[in-house]
Design a protein around this nucleic acid. Structure first.
Lengths: 136, 136
DNA sequence: GCATTATCCTAGTAAACCTATAGGAATAAA
DNA sequence: TTTATTCCTATAGGTTTACTAGGATAATGC
């Protein structure tokens, strides 16, 4: 299941991608438009800034804005930062790999094989979608 | 993330699918072979029986066995029973649909569109894989 | 300089969910 | 009647999720 954090994060990014110029948009504006709790969104945008997606400006007329062209921001990156691994099992994750405790031999594990297929099919979708696509 | 329950459930089903005949296999045998906590596996197999995948026999020489031909058991069904919805968001789920609270219009939601694609790609994998495939 | 308007940051919390575990009842076979 | 097994309910303990509180910090405009 997608966490609300991820869902809201994607919605906020999409909102910003729809903006014509890169002048800062206030958290409250986005929160209002997308029906997201202000304080929760605040913490999400903060982490998106720390992860290099957003820039910010403090004080009056401040807010958040995208740092890159939406076309260059792929959903794989967004998902990994907000949600974590795309794979359903750590032993199949490309960026967050971990060995299973119970599995003596990964290559002989039926779950492993299935989950590689699932991972690849999801990856294909995320890799083919940019934030610009989302904003359309 | 796949829950351990689902992971262990699939492993147990695969184990049973590999059995040549349908004589009952004890929980302890499976738990041992797959490195799963006995008591935990017990509760998982119980729910698999209640959901029509397994039959059981009590007492000495008892255990669990598959009720259907592994070729007829598709991973979509297994996943839905063990893990729940295949979709990452309820508003995109075929079998567990729920409207989003925050979304006024589903059809205009970028997250919704993306998650439909992800769901369909995962579904394709699960629909093309039977328990017999897993056991190979 | 000062008031106002924003973001920044750390912490905390209630509820839900996950991963088991305990302990005994029911049933079947030898 | 003993032994082996599943059946069933309850619950404990840990983790994660989805927020919320409250003040610090910085920028703007008068």
């Amino acid at each position: 299941m997608l966490s609300k954090k991820t869902k809201y994060g994607i919605k906020a990014l999409t909102y910003l991608a729809r903006q014509e110029n890169r002048t800062p948009v206030q958290i409250a504006t986005i929160a209002n438009s997308e029906n997201i709790s202000l304080k929760f969104l605040e913490s999400i945008l903060l982490s998106l800034r720390k992860n290099g997606f957003l820039g910010s400006k403090k004080g009056k007329g401040g807010g958040y804005y995208l740092l890159k062209d939406p076309k260059e921001i792929m959903m794989t990156t967004v998902m990994r930062v907000l949600e974590g691994p795309i794979a359903m099992v750590p032993c199949v994750s490309l960026n967050f790999y971990e060995k299973c405790e119970d599995c003596p031999d990964e290559h002989n594990c039926a779950v492993h094989k299935l989950m590689i297929e699932v991972r690849d099919s999801s990856l294909k979708v995320f890799r083919n979608t940019s934030l610009a696509d989302m904003a359309k």
